[in-house]
Amino acid sequence: MNRVPMTVEGAEALRAELENLKKVERPAVVQAIAEAREHGDLKENAEYHAAREKQGFIEGRIQEIEGKLSLAQVIDVKAIEPSDKVIFGTTVTIIHMDNDQEVTYKIVGDDEADVKKQKISVNSPIARALIGKEVGDVAVVQTPSGAVEYEIDEVQHI
């Protein structure tokens, strides 16, 4: 059974979604099904079929989240002694060697990745190039347009 790395924040977000699905969404859809049943003939009852479809989605998502949490290896980067080395969960500031453009990314699990929020998957090409390197090192990232070099400027445990 492969453990999946996840940040504390990522695990908390999944737990919050799971709680909302179980305590809010699931009871609401059960109520909607009960109300739709009262309208009579179920073959032609659009509300009933929509509610049943939503119920299937909710139950599927509950199982998916429970599965992810059961496989999660939650890593609290704040509890790890800070160093200049890039590891899972660190926030890394890198400088594009060609144009001096600076960018900061947090290396997170697959489910947490969101480039708009500067969170990249540990399995992304850029994160794979950065992991294990230290401040001052140059990481080479293979992109569709060729190799790009980034200098690691800062590593934070935040």
Rank of each mutant, 00 (worst) to 15 (best):
V122H: 09
E53D: 14
I152V: 15
K22N: 05
G40R: 04
G146N: 11
A147Y: 12
A147F: 12
G109K: 02
D84W: 14
A147D: 15
N123P: 01
E66I: 03
G109S: 01
M97T: 12
M97I: 13
E102Y: 13
G136Q: 10
D98F: 12
I120G: 00
I58C: 11
G67L: 02
N20A: 08
I65M: 07
T91R: 13
G136C: 07
P82H: 10
A147R: 13
I58H: 08
D84V: 02
K68C: 03
R26A: 08
L71Y: 09
E112I: 03
E149H: 12
A32C: 01
H39V: 02
Q156M: 10
N20Y: 12
E38N: 07
G89T: 00
E35K: 15
E151P: 01
V30R: 06
I87T: 09
T143M: 14
A113R: 05
A16H: 03
I107K: 03
G60A: 01
R128W: 06
Q31W: 03
V103C: 00
L18T: 04
K78I: 10
K116A: 15
R3V: 08
D41T: 08
I131E: 12
G67N: 12
I75H: 01
A127M: 13
V148W: 11
V155L: 09
V140W: 07
G56D: 11
V148Y: 11
I107E: 02
I131S: 01
